[in-house]
Design a protein around this nucleic acid. Structure first.
Length: 569
RNA sequence: GCGCCUAUAGCUCAAUUGGAUAGAGCAACGGACUUCUAAUCCGUAGGUUGCAGGUUCGACUCCUGCUAGGCGUACCA
């Protein structure tokens, strides 16, 4: 379709130039001609509001401009155009010849799994960092949402020709993991019968640490009590991080998300890079001393307050290793870096923007997007509170476990991914478990998967009756005359631009919606028109090509989302 | 207080980034399996896009001011 668009674009552009040359249109320059896919077949296959856009410059009524432009198009001279209408306020609606509509089917047949991809990104290196949960507990469902979105964005960027990678930043240093270690220590001693202990302020209450402490007791007994407290806590920190990180990795793997790079905050701290950053900031006079701490002049970069970089006790705040980490990302050669942040990281955005300026990096090098909160709602629509420290939270694994009870493991992952991807990143998401479980059959993901399964089923049935699909070159596509068939083809033709748009806007949710719409044309078609008709094999083969195309696009789309495309349901 | 996000049909969400008559699903009502899978389809009904202005040929979309809800605003990460 894109080649068709180019062809139509050129025709329109030369028509406008011709009108200008003929002195009928008084404009100084021809702007980029916008195209909008049509909502209804009456509006043709491609439409442009260019006449409306030119109206001010040309000081003429939009409809008059449209008429002048169309006058300079010799419809008969262009095989691609069947008919041109002017409608509404001055829209130019272009109806394509059927042959060009059928080109979409040829493209799909030729490209197969690659249909929808392009080379626009020219192999540029992009990094998406997402999830990056603290190694202090199991992944919750917000992390699950981030995992689904980040994974899909990487797929999308790779589809349009970028070289994108998935990265997870492990915060395995600093205060949080220290409190984790202290919490494990308390649980360990409690497991050995010590009374009167409490989880420290800011520590982690979750049962998972009691279970973990129990396994330590089972393998090592009370031997760790002989260590000095500091040494024991340090030991538990390493053990705890390794244990929890292992669990997080397992959860992500189960969810179908595999990171290419795992970065470690501890490694960054040990690399000496934070010291280089501090030195750089000092040279640039970004730092000052106050109240016994070292501050960064964030206000110089438009922020509303300065922030501490070295605490009174001499330790770095998170900002320094974070700065070093982003510097490291740049040094690794990424032309674009995208951070998907959790809802509790809003404050990071302005600080990281300031940081990018302070490091002298291009403004648009770092993109940040908040993956908004996921509220788990019960049947009454009541929200459930999720606090990791209090230990009341709903994990990604629990979500999949519960879904799997009714729909099985594979569909559980599919449903969860689809739900997480359905909404725009910046929107809050209500995940209604009751609905997802009790009304599983009404779930949109099944609607799409069922469409794919039905396509497969047609070929299976055909096979049983000795009907084998022919190569597209041997098929008379002219037999695809039904309005619904043309509607399907137009929808299939949209796919590559949906993928491109979705990737460029970082809006993964467009893909689920597109697939749902495509299925919404396919199902009625399937109900109203029989594909396999032994009495008319020519028509049958034409329709089989169409079904193959639908099947391919559904599968390609689902693959981008990391959702399975079942052959039967 | 300041900042970010959100507000569209009874409910959950779309609307190709400023375009044509704002679309789907669920819930409600009425219909379709002797037919490639009924996890489907057909039909009916449902709207002052939170409120008030502004920008323009044109606004759910952009600007200003309100209202309501969520989140953030650490010498935690």
């Amino acid at each position: 379709m894109d080649t068709i668009k180019t062809e139509v674009y050129n025709i329109l552009e030369s028509a406008i130039h011709a009108a200008v040359d003929a002195g009928e249109l008084a404009i100084s320059e021809v702007p980029t001609i916008p195209f909008s896919p049509t909502k209804t077949p009456e509006h043709g296959d491609i439409a442009t509001p260019i006449a409306l856009g030119l109206s001010k410059q040309a000081r003429m009524a939009p409809r008059t401009i449209a008429e002048i432009i169309v006058k300079h198009i010799d419809t008969a001279a262009h095989a691609i155009i069947r008919q041109i209408d002017i409608a509404g306020a001055g829209f130019i609606n272009i109806h394509l010849s059927d042959n060009y509509l059928y080109d979409t089917l040829h493209t799909i047949a030729a490209m197969q799994a690659a249909y929808g991809t392009c080379e626009k990104g020219a192999g540029k290196q992009v990094q998406i960092e997402f999830v990056s949960a603290n190694p202090t507990g199991p992944l919750n469902i917000v992390s699950g949402r981030a995992a689904a979105v980040g994974d899909t964005l990487v797929n999308l960027l790779n589809a349009i020709g970028y070289n994108a990678i998935r990265e997870f930043y492990v915060n395995d240093a600093g205060g949080q993991v220290q409190r984790l270690a202290e919490s494990i220590d308390v649980r360990y001693r409690q497991a050995l019968g010590e009374d009167g202990l409490e989880i420290p302020e800011g520590g982690y209450q979750g049962e998972y640490l009691q279970e973990f402490a129990q396994t330590i007791v089972e393998t090592n007994g009370d031997t760790h009590l002989r260590l000095k407290t500091d040494e024991r806590v340090a030991l538990f920190r390493d053990k705890g991080i390794a244990h929890i990180l292992g669990q997080q990795k397992a959860s992500l793997e189960r969810f179908g998300v595999n990171f290419d790079v795992w970065s470690s905050e501890k490694a960054i701290r040990d690399s000496g890079k934070p010291e280089e950053i501090i030195q750089l900031f000092q040279e640039k006079k970004y730092l000052y001393e106050a109240e016994g701490a070292t501050w960064f002049r964030m206000t110089d970069f438009g922020d509303d307050k300065d922030c501490v970089v070295i605490r009174q006790d001499g330790e770095y705040t998170y900002f320094v290793p974070d700065a070093a980490y982003h510097r490291d990302k740049f040094d690794r050669g990424f032309t674009t870096v995208i951070d998907l942040l959790g809802p509790d990281h809003q404050g990071h955005i302005s600080r990281l923007k300031s940081l990018v300026k302070a490091l002298g990096l291009p403004d648009d090098w770092l993109e940040m997007s908040i993956i908004q909160q996921v509220n788990l709602v019960n049947a009454e629509g009541k929200r459930q509170d999720m606090s990791k420290r209090r230990g009341q939270f709903y994990t990604l694994d629990t979500l999949i476990d519960e879904l799997a009870e009714t729909v099985g493991e594979q569909f559980a992952v599919d449903v969860a991914r689809y739900f997480f991807l359905m909404r725009a990143n910046s929107s809050h998401l209500d995940f209604n478990m009751e609905l997802a479980i009790t009304h599983a059959s009404e779930n949109p993901v099944f609607y799409i998967q069922y469409a794919h399964a039905r396509c497969c089923s047609i070929f299976e049935q055909g096979d049983e009756h000795g009907i084998t699909p022919k190569p597209i070159e041997e098929v008379s596509l002219k037999r695809l005359t039904e309005p619904m068939e043309h509607e399907l083809i137009r929808k299939l033709a949209e796919f590559p631009s949906i993928v491109r748009l979705s990737a460029e806007a970082r809006e993964a949710h467009r893909i689920p919606h597109y697939l749902y719409e495509l299925s919404g044309i396919f199902h009625p078609y399937y109900n109203q028109h029989r594909v396999l008709d032994p009495a008319d094999m020519e028509k049958t083969h034409a329709r089989l090509i169409l079904i193959q195309s639908v099947q391919t696009v559904l599968k390609n789309g689902l693959t981008l989302l990391g959702i399975s495309a079942p052959t039967s349901m």
